[in-house]
């Protein structure tokens, strides 16, 4: 039943039955990962300093954080 409620009238895209089902399975699995990762990151961060590499990583910084200057303001994983 919940599914009907979740399919709001505004959803003008057809999300696809198969896509919905795989998403539910994956999300469940990956959600657990998020919980684990929060703690794992803290451990890793403790031992490791972030190293900058290559052009692609610089691009990633720009796309994901708008440049290194404001990493802290948007990287709100936790």
């Amino acid at each position: 039943m919940r599914f009907i409620i979740l399919m709001k009238p505004l959803a003008y895209l057809d999300p696809g039955s198969g896509s919905f089902i795989i998403q539910m399975l994956l999300a469940g699995l990956l959600g657990v990962g998020v919980g684990v990762r929060i703690y794992w990151k803290k451990i890793v961060a403790f031992f490791n300093k972030k190293k900058g590499t290559g052009a692609q990583d610089d691009l990633d910084d720009l796309d994901e954080y708008g440049g290194k200057d404001d990493i802290s303001s948007t990287d709100s994983d936790e």
């Binding site: 999300a27 469940g28 699995l29 990956l30 959600g31 998020v34 994983d77």
Partner: peptide, 8 residues
Amino acid sequence: QALIGLLD
């Protein structure tokens, strides 16, 4: 949290 996992 699961959705964030998916996006990550």
